[in-house]
Lab assay of single mutants.
Amino acid sequence: KELVSALYDYQEKSPREVTMKKGDILTLLNSTNKDWWKVEVNGRQGFVPAAYVKKL
């Protein structure tokens, strides 16, 4: 599985998104959309802005 690192804090703005803190390591589930990537963090799945994470 592919991992990404959070470059910035992000506070979810809808139920489809997830909150992350800078430095968090997230499991990348889907990166086909260039703007929003689906990740899993702390057992929750949702979307984060692609520009806020980088692949490890």
Rank of each mutant, 00 (worst) to 15 (best):
N42G: 12
Y8S: 10
L56R: 05
S14V: 05
A6I: 02
D24S: 06
L3Q: 11
N33M: 09
G46M: 05
G23A: 04
E17R: 04
G43K: 05
K22Y: 06
L56M: 11
E2P: 12
D9T: 05
K34C: 12
W36F: 07
S31I: 07
Y52V: 09
S31M: 11
G43V: 02
R44L: 08
Q45P: 06
K22G: 05
S5T: 15
K34D: 12
A6W: 01
G46V: 04
G23P: 00
K55W: 09
K54N: 09
E12Q: 13
V18L: 14
T27W: 14
Q11L: 13
Y8N: 09
S5Q: 15
K55T: 10
E2W: 13
W37S: 03
R16H: 13
V41W: 07
S14K: 07
N33I: 06
D9H: 05
L7C: 13
V41A: 11
R44Q: 09
P15I: 10
E12Y: 05
M20N: 00
E17H: 07
L7I: 12
D35N: 13
T27Y: 13
L7R: 08
K54M: 12
V18E: 00
P15G: 10
K1M: 14
V53W: 01
W36Q: 03
E40Y: 06
D24G: 04
N30I: 08
I25Q: 06
N30L: 09
A50F: 02
K34T: 11
E2H: 11
K54C: 15
W37K: 01
E40T: 05
L7N: 05
T19F: 04
D35I: 14
E17N: 06
S14T: 12
F47C: 14
T32Q: 13
E40M: 08
N42R: 11
K38N: 07
K1Q: 12
W36V: 03
S5R: 15
P15E: 12
D35P: 02
A50Q: 05
E40V: 06
K55N: 09
K13N: 10
E12N: 08
K55P: 13
N30V: 09
K38Q: 14
S31Q: 11
N33L: 09
K22L: 06
Q45F: 08
Q11R: 09
L3K: 11
V18N: 03
K22M: 10
L26Q: 00
K22V: 09
L3N: 06
L26K: 00
N30P: 03
V53M: 06
G46C: 03
E40R: 06
Q45G: 06
D9M: 03
S5N: 08
V53P: 02
K34Q: 11
